[in-house]
Simulated assay, not measured.
Amino acid sequence: MNMTDKEKEHLKFLGKKIAQKRRSKKLSQLDVCALIDMEKSNLSAIENGRQNVTALTLLKIGNAIGVEIKEFYDFSTH
């Protein structure tokens, strides 16, 4: 499936927010992956906007780092 530029931008924004929130909690990608049983390469792809994240995976990531999903969509810091 070919993504539009707007869709690609959305995935990059979301990935950056996930990475920012994770780092703010002093967690590595490996820490989060261990908590949610995910390969590091998958989390890396999500954080770099190369992979679409499912709603369930987003919920798991949020729970693992202690943030609500809505915080990933805080456009005030974009």
Score class of each variant (00 low, 15 high):
Thr57Arg: 13
Thr77Ser: 12
Cys33Lys: 07
Ile36His: 08
Thr57Ala: 06
Ala19Arg: 15
Ile65Phe: 08
Leu27Glu: 13
Phe75Asp: 12
Lys21Met: 10
Leu43Pro: 12
Asn63Gln: 11
Leu56Phe: 11
Gln29Glu: 14
Lys12Glu: 15
Lys12Pro: 01
Ile18Tyr: 09
Ala55Glu: 06
Asp5Phe: 06
Gln51Tyr: 09
Ala45Ser: 14
Lys17Cys: 10
Phe13Met: 13
Ser76Met: 03
Ser76Tyr: 07
Gly66Asp: 01
Ile61Ser: 05
Tyr73Ile: 01
Thr77Asn: 13
Val67Thr: 03
Glu7Gly: 04
Asn52Val: 06
Gln51Pro: 03
Leu58Glu: 04
Ala45Asp: 12
Ser41Val: 00
Ala45Tyr: 04
Thr4Phe: 04
Lys60Trp: 02
Val53Phe: 08
Thr77Arg: 11
Glu9Val: 07
Ile65Asp: 04
Lys16Phe: 09
Leu58Tyr: 02
Lys40Ser: 03
Gly66Met: 03
Glu7Gln: 14
Glu9Cys: 09
Leu27Arg: 10
Asp37Asn: 15
Gly15Tyr: 06
Asn63Ile: 00
Gln51Asp: 01
Lys60Ala: 10
Asp74Asn: 15
Lys17Ile: 02
Ile18Glu: 05
Leu30His: 14
Leu14Ala: 07
Ala55His: 02
Lys17Asp: 05
Gly66Cys: 01
Ala34Pro: 00
